[in-house]
Design a protein around this nucleic acid. Structure first.
Lengths: 231, 231
DNA sequence: CGGACTCTTGAAATTATTCAATCGGGGTGG
DNA sequence: CCACCCCGATTGAATAATTTCAAGAGTCCG
């Protein structure tokens, strides 16, 4: 479930978990700037991380990451002590909490486990870089296709894909937010993808109709996900 | 110089350094996918990290990070073993190398040092998020202003600003790459910034003429840099 | 049945890209 | 010293991509 954690670390985490909680859809877990003394692992559901603009012109928050089951959603807060962004649920979610103190103990205990945790956050960073690439270089159509490609692979990895379909709980306006486009334009792009029988976005579900063409359209290379890589 | 590293770690790094090397401008330090067994600290100069597209349509590389003196340029490779992006010099640079083995020893020795290194990479990640925000939400003018605001603060922090001027060694086409715009459009934006007496970009130098208005134009909030934050 | 949403579509306005040409400075060789 | 050349910067004009504004259609729910 979690991306390739060593068994020993996995066992240690089992003992370090302080609480498992269920959150409703669209609720806030952590706000930017709040001191944080624990981190959370997403067991089930989809969560998002977003940064907010400051002035009215730039004020709308922008989604900068999306987390799938098996991801730590706010492990970045362990070395930082606080976050620069908000962390929220998209769908109803179940999350496991780990006090930072317990995580620090695990890290002090075993250097390899320590790097394994670090590694998870470095994969997050690689994904951040890809998202920057996506909004900097890709046109609307390719950007949306690229996003669907990434989510398809990540949802496959945590076993949340059935018959080429997976549930993200996103509305069109959320998707617009993710890729940095206007909702109206996203709507037209989705229509094109649907008409081209590449993929269908509906009711919070994404259905991949033609993986090969979708990947080609986006020019997608999943190397940055480090999926087939030994820890 | 390095962002708020504990003295003890700083001393330990002194002993762990295997080599100091000078690189010429526009040379490659590390390529994506190559196995890496050491990381480098930038002592002097400017370096960039960029990801490459795959298909012809998306093929041009996009700059995803820019490093100033005091930054580790490829510390992400320590937990990952390889990078998903290329690391190159922009200006002539001096860099100090640290074998991963030595860094692992430091981390095994002291958990606090371990988190301090991790923390550096987490600030990188926060900057990545801001860059995603920049290209996703900001218009050309605001995006360029935002970039100059960030670099101004970071260059101040490593003491590379004289009379509101600092050297990045960027050409207009590099800047276009950074913010995800066409070179021609960047040229026009720069003209507007110059005509408005906000800032001047010339000969690889950036001169901040009116910090307050520039910051306001970009809606800039430097919280994500974690500059006034205890480690 | 009446909201309150979300999605969809059209048309106009804006923003950014592309293409194409010109300008200008810094070197180099004659 | 000067003519030439190269490369980056600059500008204009045409095109394309995207946003904004505005209006309607479908759906869910009280």
């Amino acid at each position: 479930m979690v991306r390739l954690l060593p068994d020993r670390l996995w066992a240690a985490l089992g003992g370090a978990c302080s609480e498992v909680r269920s959150l409703s859809a669209r609720s806030v877990l952590t706000r930017a700037g709040e001191p944080v003394d624990h981190s959370a692992l997403l067991i089930d559901g989809i969560m998002v991380r977003y940064v907010a603009g400051v002035t009215p012109a730039t004020g709308k928050p922008l989604t900068v990451a999306l987390q799938v089951p098996g991801d730590f959603v706010d492990l970045h807060a362990l070395p930082l002590g606080q976050l620069d962004h908000d962390v929220c649920t998209l769908t109803p979610a179940r999350i496991a909490f780990f006090p930072h103190e317990a995580l620090r103990d695990i890290m002090a205990e075993n250097a390899e486990d320590s790097r394994a945790l670090w590694r998870l956050t470095m994969i997050d960073a690689a994904i951040h870089r890809h998202w920057t690439y996506r909004s900097g270089r890709l046109r609307a159509m390719a950007a949306v296709a690229d996003f669907f490609c990434e989510m398809h692979l990540r949802m496959l990895a945590c076993d949340r894909v059935t018959e080429q379909r997976f549930y993200l709980g996103l509305m069109q306006s959320d998707l617009a937010d993710l890729v940095g486009l206007s909702p109206v334009h996203v709507n037209r792009v989705l229509k094109d993808l649907r008409d081209g029988d590449l993929c269908v976005f509906q009711g919070g579900y994404v259905e991949i109709r033609d993986w090969v063409r979708l990947q080609k359209l986006a020019g997608y290379d999943p190397g940055y996900l480090f999926m087939d890589d030994p820890p």
